[in-house]
Design a protein around this nucleic acid. Structure first.
Length: 425
RNA sequence: GGAGAGCUGGCCGAGUGGUCGAAGGCACUUCCCUGCUAAGGAAGCAUACGGGCUUAAAUCUGUAUCGAGGGUUCGAAUCCCUCGCUCUCCGCCA
């Protein structure tokens, strides 16, 4: 959520910044609503003040044993007026809130401008793609004989679900373990275990609701709707909801390995084959809650924390700065890491690291107490470190051998009981 | 799933219709006293959203908030209804 004060005082600038990311904000509608709000609020509060004063004097008079009928007459019609005024004010505030909840974050000045991913800017490229002296297979063909079973996934659940068995399943687990260990032991994150099912309020805080309900899996549970988390950014970031954290508690660095569930509405036809785009996938997530002065520093750190995983796995990748039109709803700035997939002969997203500045914090009412004793919104950042399923894809493709086996990256071997390769049985 | 108890400010905890945004305590901040890693005294100390003034801040002022929502009333932390959550016991399970 944007700062409504900023909209009041600097509307034109906000509108033009939003335009950069392709969002049309109607300033006239906002201004009208704001004027109505101001009138309604001033009137209502004046009536309330009148009522409160009268009630107080009734109390005083009664305590003294005086007659209160004169004051009672004066207050007689107030109730109805007040009720109408309050209802109107609530209605307007509801509208304003709805409007605000559906406006995306402002892009940071350093974000390249553009309307889609074509305008993203490569920041750096690390590692050299391996050259193959045989025809490379994609991960589905490499994985199938080793236990990557799409048919069973489809039978059990439908398209975009995968079943794994044997060495592949273990490799998948090894990847997650390795990532989690690296984030906790090397980068100072606190390991967390979080719910996978959350309520609507939680998703409102991080920005998935109300606008993106179609991308979520939801179900009814005793009258209330609950949702499967699309990422543990949701649960980790919401740990500070409605909190005023002490200054010295910052930065808070959290990580978790969880499944993620996305209905990916609107992505039909994209990546239909294989496990690039799944309804359920695992991810090790990093979240940082930081002082506003430190958030851009933290963003760079977090990208490195994700890159370190790719480097340890010796997977070639590149880092891109997303342009204004390609960034997510809550992000002020986002870096994506894209891993090299030889079968696709291209780089594909494997991590996304975003600074949301105070956008989520405002929705979450997540604050800290500054050195001056004032409460201020924290800045929140999140990033994948990394998407486990896609990392498995990258390992299968980049480490495949001509005989159909897959070499296990060195850092994963301890997690695989010392196994050096997955071989056909 | 059944029965009971509870939900008040950063924390603990009073408060069953009227000068209650809320006693008291702890913690915290400032000051005084004291000369030693302590004690005593004074004051301050919730959050959000408006409005006035202002370059801005401070300040002033209004409103709302005692789990949430609704109701009764001139007036609700206090009474009524609905819901949520927490705890204890029982049942069931991993």
């Amino acid at each position: 959520m944007l700062d409504i004060q900023q909209l009041r005082s600097d509307l034109d600038s906000v509108v033009s910044q939003l335009k950069k990311r392709g969002f049309e904000f109607n300033p006239a509608a906002f201004t009208t609503l704001e004027q109505e709000r101001k009138i309604a609020q001033t009137n209502t509060e004046a009536l309330q003040a009148k009522r409160n004063a009268a009630s107080k004097s009734i109390g005083i008079a009664k305590a003294k044993g005086e007659d209160v009928s004169a004051i009672m007459v004066e207050v007689a019609g107030l109730g109805e007026q007040l009720k109408a005024g309050e209802a109107q004010l609530t209605e307007i505030q509801e509208q304003l809130k709805n409007l605000m909840l559906n406006v995306p974050n402002l892009p940071h000045d350093s974000v390249p401008q553009g309307k889609d991913e074509a305008a993203n800017v490569e920041v750096r490229k690390v590692g050299t793609p391996r050259s193959f002296d045989f025809a490379v297979k994609d991960h589905t063909d490499v994985g199938a004989p080793l236990g990557l079973d799409f048919e069973t996934g489809i039978k059990l659940s439908g398209a975009r679900f995968t079943f794994m068995r044997g060495g592949i399943a273990k490799l998948h687990r090894a990847l997650a373990q390795f990532m989690l260990d690296t984030q906790t032991e090397q980068h100072g994150y606190t390991e967390c275990y979080t719910p996978y099912l959350v309520n609507a309020e939680t998703l409102l805080g991080t920005g998935q609701l109300p606008k993106f309900e179609a991308d979520l899996f939801g179900m009814m549970h005793s009258e209330a709707k609950m949702y499967l988390i699309p990422t543990s950014e949701v649960t980790l970031t919401n740990t500070v909801r409605d909190k005023i954290v002490p200054l010295e508690a910052l930065p808070i660095k959290l990580t978790a390995h969880t499944p993620c569930f996305r209905s990916e509405a609107g992505s039909y036809g994209k990546d239909t084959k294989g496990m690039i785009r799944q309804h359920q996938f695992d991810k090790v997530e990093m979240v940082q809650i930081v002082h506003p002065d430190k958030s851009y520093e933290a963003l760079e750190d977090m990208v490195c924390h994700a890159e370190n995983i790719l480097q340890a796995l010796e997977l070639p990748y590149r880092m891109v700065s997303l342009c204004t039109g390609d960034m997510g709803f809550g992000a002020a700035k986002t870096y994506d890491l894209e891993v090299w997939l030889p079968a696709q002969n291209t780089y594909r997203e494997i991590s996304s690291v975003s600074n949301c500045e105070a956008f989520q914090a405002r929705r979450l009412q997540a604050r800290f107490r500054s050195a001056q004793g004032k409460t201020e919104f924290v800045h929140t950042l999140n990033g994948s470190g990394l998407a486990v399923g896609r990392t498995l894809v990258a390992v299968l493709e980049n480490y495949q051998n001509v005989d159909g086996s897959v070499t296990i990256p060195k850092v994963l071997q301890p997690y695989m009981g010392g196994l050096a390769a997955l071989k056909l049985s």
